[in-house]
Each structure stands twice: as structure tokens, then as C-alpha cells.
Design a protein around this nucleic acid. Structure first.
Lengths: 113, 113
DNA sequence: ATCATACTTAGCCATAAGGCTTAGTAAGTG
DNA sequence: CACTTACTAAGCCTTATGGCTAAGTATGAT
């Protein structure tokens, strides 16, 4: 298990922006061209392309040029590292059966002082 | 379902950094003071505090001053919006039973031109 | 009272993020 | 061939991020 995972960095960061999350939601319904994707977003096209590039860098989407059009599609496997990490965290947390005891101990220690 | 969710922004962005993910992993094992948390990270304390602040802003951790020490603990409920969003995406994707058909259609359309 | 510890505040710096405009290029359309 | 469409490239701007040092405050220990 890597201590530092560049893939997680890229994916989490990509998901940290509402425009990019909306793009993913749209693509979950099926592939679309750049201008189709851009239409709902009040933003100049070059700015929008920046978001697509981040998503592609994170491997959340893949794109392919068809003539003068670029088709984008979702790559749902890119979510796996994320769900995996979240699952690890949940396991760690739930492994701590003494969590509440510790909290009580903290409070007691505080009161003593 | 909000089109823009500031909570998701904050949480995903907070998770997009390896230092911050390591802090969370440590806290999943139990509460810790700032300097305990900082010890494994080769970084000046003020820089490290910046990461803690982001985690606290995202409500992923909560902190409390005990004397001159600040105790940090994990707030695991903050993960719920994230797992919720991921689940929505999965549902969207899996709802598209015709995903593969569409891909074939795209290819066919391309070949026609 | 003095000293050490554990943050905390302030401010600087470099790079990245996220927006813009303006000007290309490549592919269809007539 | 001219014209439109769909990106693409270049460069500028502002703010945010992530790091630093240096100095300050508050608490605990002697």
C-alpha cells in the first residue's frame, strides 16, 4: 500500500470542482462531444477545456477525435482507487472498538487538570 | 439534489493531498495532538497547521484545546456526502444498460462519414 | 520568577488553478 | 474555393495553495 499515491491526488483533486463533477454526471449518461458538454456551463471554451484536461489527466475520462469533433467518455474504473481508499479508512475507523473509551479518557484527563 | 455542493468541494479538495490523507489515516486510529500528528511530516509546523485547518474547514476533523495542547479527532460523518456522491454516479452509470450499444453506434456513425 | 513547550500569528515567496481574450488550424458544407 | 464549425494554442490576469521564517502568546514545569 503506497504511502503517497499520485493517482489518488489527481482523482480527488479533479472531483473537488463542481464543474468537473457535473461533466462526470453528464458522461455517466453516455459519451458526448466537447461542445455538447460545454453548453450548460457559462464559461469560455478554452476555460472549459482546462477542466476536461484535468479529468483526462486523472483518467476519469478518455477522449478521441472524430473528424473535427472530440468525443469524451467516462472511465468508471478511475473511481476504484477512491472507493478503495475510503473503504480502508472506514475499516481503520471501525477497527477502533475502543474509540468511545478513548474519548471518555480524554475528558477525564482534562477534568483532572 | 444541489447542483453545486460546497461541502463536496471542500471534502474532495481536502482529500486531494497526501499529507492530509495521512493525517486522516492516523486519526482513524484515535485522537492525537498537533505535534504528535506533525512528527512524521518533514514540514515546518505552520505549514502543517495549514493542512489541519483545511481538514477542519471540511469538517473532516474537529479540534479542541486542552491546556497548551490541541487535540484533533476524526469526524467520520464528513465522508458521507462523498460516498453518497460516488454512489449516485455509480447508479447513473449502471442505469445505462445501453452503454455498450452506444459505443458501437458511435463507431458505426464514424465509419459512415 | 524563569524556562521550555506547544502552538499561533504575520508576512513573504513560488507555483498552480481557473478564468479570460485573441488568433490559429483542421474538417465539413455548399 | 469560400465559409462555418469545432476545437486548439498562446498568453495574460487574479487568486489560491503550499511551503518558509521569524516572532509572539499561553501553559506547564522547576
Amino acid at each position: 500500500m503506497a504511502k503517497y499515491d499520485a493517482k489518488l491526488d489527481a482523482v480527488f483533486t479533479a472531483l473537488g470542482d463542481p464543474t468537473r463533477r457535473e461533466i462526470l454526471s453528464r458522461l455517466a449518461r453516455g459519451p458526448a462531444s466537447v461542445s455538447e458538454l460545454a453548453a450548460p456551463h457559462d464559461m469560455a471554451l478554452p476555460s472549459f477545456m482546462g477542466h476536461l484536461r484535468k479529468l483526462e489527466d486523472a483518467r476519469l475520462i478518455a477522449t478521441e477525435k472524430q473528424g473535427r469533433t472530440r468525443i469524451c467518455r467516462l472511465m468508471p474504473d478511475a473511481f476504484l482507487p477512491v472507493t478503495g481508499w475510503l473503504e480502508e479508512q472506514r475499516a481503520l475507523w471501525e477497527g477502533r472498538l475502543d474509540q468511545f473509551d478513548d474519548y471518555v479518557t480524554q475528558l477525564a484527563r482534562k477534568r483532572e487538570k
